[in-house]
Design a protein around this nucleic acid. Structure first.
Lengths: 208, 208
DNA sequence: ATATGTATAAATGTATACATTGTAGATTAT
DNA sequence: ATAATCTACAATGTATACATTTATACATAT
């Protein structure tokens, strides 16, 4: 496997992204360049690069001369993101099912298994993300998958908050199982319908 | 009107963006930090910031330790972008028509007029962009409009190439007129159908 | 002649230092 | 006491200098 040389900026960006998505750093938190530089024992330059990168992913908001804060979404904004995900993910799913071959199934099955392992306690959110991404990638639509990833990432921080309260993922595991069966049978119509309700339910839960 | 203080990085990014979209800087061109720094009479720092920003908009591609090049799209990638635009723009148009009031019409009419003025010779591409954006903004979907803008921007460079050869915008002006009439009558169904053919025609023209 | 390895040069990545902008606190005037 | 202005501090923006990585050219060996 080819390992690309990871710059400091990329490493910092990834760490911060993980912290934000895990809920360790809450939305609305100010991110001071100097503080972060001290935390990572580097200069402010790679920190700035990292913040710019996170800004481009929508995870932090930068105002000129006024610093960066972890993006805080209103319920309306979260709702809009879910509407976008609905459109883009359903389309990607449909395309994926149409072009995929039996050879692609093991990867999906593996991701599904990972979800079961991480169901309670473990890193459920990442496993869930990986399951969906595995499917969407089969569509071959690079840009579309990239946008979907960005949208999913930007709401993940709010799930981290949520799941500490009500950690009831078994319902979603069943939906994943059902989705896999549809994929296995190449039943795009039904798969899309499942995903649609999956996302709508999630949206409602998260906003309420 | 509130004028936000424009950092050097933002100014450089805007200039480069304009150059790329105008076709002055062609896709595939390497963008050396030092050269750009000399061109704008600044240090490499704001240049790097600008390149990161353009990278986040998909206009340039950055590889670690290997510099930045103006993003070069394959016909397949262009096609994918048009498919995404089709989905997102049609949805935005439909939503815009549903929520807009008669008070919103003058702005659209103004943008339409601008298109006529810039039809041949002038800055048609910008006027066309502004016309569509004016409509989509009425939907109130900030994130969605942002994504649409990014997608439109990333293919604009290829139109710049194209329009020097065959500058025949009158056909599209007619389509704009027709679209406006649908909007005026709040006929979302027909408007979406028009936009769909508008985009499909454009896609085919650009790729061939 | 091709391929490989090394050395040199050029470009990007990072650190440090300086400039500018924005903010908070205090002082003064109303 | 409140409002406004000025001053000092803190944070970001930018420039310069250094470190690391990558690419190019040349030499050498097969």
């Amino acid at each position: 496997m080819l390992r690309k040389s990871l710059s400091l900026a990329d490493a910092i960006a990834e760490t911060l992204k993980a912290d934000i998505q895990a809920g360790t750093i809450l939305p609305g938190t100010r991110l001071h360049q100097e503080d972060l530089a001290k935390r990572f024992s580097v200069s402010r330059v790679p920190v700035r690069d990292a913040l710019f990168k996170l800004n481009s992913e929508g995870l932090v908001s930068i105002e000129a001369n006024r610093g960066a804060i972890v993006t805080k979404l209103t319920p309306e904004q979260i709702s809009e993101i879910y509407d976008l995900r609905l459109i883009l993910e359903c389309d990607a799913l449909e395309r994926a099912i149409k072009v995929m071959t039996p050879n692609d199934l093991p990867a999906v099955r593996r991701a599904l298994k990972m979800c079961r392992l991480q169901a309670d306690g473990g890193d459920w959110l990442t496993a869930d993300n990986e399951f969906h991404r595995t499917i969407y990638r089969l569509s071959g639509r690079t840009k579309q998958v990239e946008i979907i990833d960005t949208l999913r990432a930007s709401v993940q921080a709010y799930w981290a908050q949520y799941s500490t309260l009500a950690t009831n993922e078994s319902h979603w595991l069943e939906q994943h199982d059902a989705l896999y069966r549809c994929i296995e049978q190449k039943d795009a119509r039904r798969a899309v319908k499942l995903l649609r309700t999956h996302l709508i339910e999630a949206s409602i839960k998260l906003i309420s």
